[in-house]
Design a protein around this nucleic acid. Structure first.
Lengths: 153, 153
DNA sequence: GTGCCCTTGTCAGGTTCCCTGACTGTACGC
DNA sequence: GCGTACAGTCAGGGAACCTGACAAGGGCAC
């Protein structure tokens, strides 16, 4: 089986378990595509453009996802004080509850895999994937190098 | 970053490279979704139902993919001598050429990752994923336990 | 054999999630 | 100020799935 097949099947396995448990929670209206917002959200909100970049999708697609989350009460748009063109997407209280519930669920799934396949092996799996992703998908990584204070302006 | 995010990004990275190289080959009309046929194809062909099972999709979806591959000249349908309801999906000569080209490409990508991130680490990655998939996604694995000769009948 | 249920594949129609292209309004270098 | 670049939106489309309903063949009880 080619490597991408294994990656995909493992991904699907996590997601099936995750969505199954989400569907039985009070956050049953959350869908997989919403993850791109929850995954990257920062304290003070994120611009649509940032969501799109880190999610490796177009602004239009990211906008749809945000519209959906706003309609469901998980997110809201606020004007960006630094740029009147931009809006900051922020989680509502309910959005934050969903986010931390989801993260907890995912951590539990990873822990269960550790018990099933060996904690060290799963830790190695994660470490290798992190190295790979740092090179192959750098756009997805947290900070797009917020310039150092000394470099500002 | 949650584990499924890493798995997805790594998957996307392989696929982007793979599809990019396929697009520059003589098989530029092959799309990602076609993989479910090429990946599982056996010597004497596969029934639609088998393709659907191993690809974890409905018969209808598998049927669409096969229609597409037939239209593109990569596959053909032959009657199944053992069951007049069923048809065996087989690769054409061109289909076999595309399959082996694709497999070779994927093996090269994996080899490059070995050079970039350490051959042993990528081998471990594969081994761990194989264990995970064997438990979490057994439907995708080659033989649905063809009964042993002694157990037949 | 006949009737009944299961399986195989197909037709029709719908959803999700993403895309391209065209556009408005704001920012900013020059 | 002017032109270019960028943030986000509107409109439309397509790929890859899905559910439901169906015809035709298989397999078994009787």
């Amino acid at each position: 089986m080619p490597l991408h097949g294994l990656l995909e099947l493992a991904f699907d396995a996590v997601i099936e378990e995750f969505l199954g448990e989400m569907a039985n929670s009070e956050f049953s209206d959350i869908r997989l595509a919403h993850g791109c917002v929850f995954r990257h959200m920062k304290e003070n909100g994120l611009r649509l453009t940032e969501i799109a970049e880190r999610g490796n999708m177009t602004k239009q697609s990211a906008g749809e996802v945000v519209d959906d989350l706003v309609a469901l009460g998980y997110a809201e748009r606020a004007p960006d004080p630094d740029d009147r063109r931009a809006k900051l997407v922020r989680l509502t209280e309910r959005g934050e509850a969903a986010q931390s519930y989801g993260f907890r669920l995912l951590a539990e799934i990873e822990k269960r895999w550790g018990e099933r396949y060996g904690a060290e092996r799963i830790a190695d799996l994660r470490a290798t994937l992190e190295d790979v992703v740092a090179v192959e998908a750098p756009f997805a990584l947290s900070e797009p190098a917020e310039p150092e204070p000394a470099m500002r302006r």
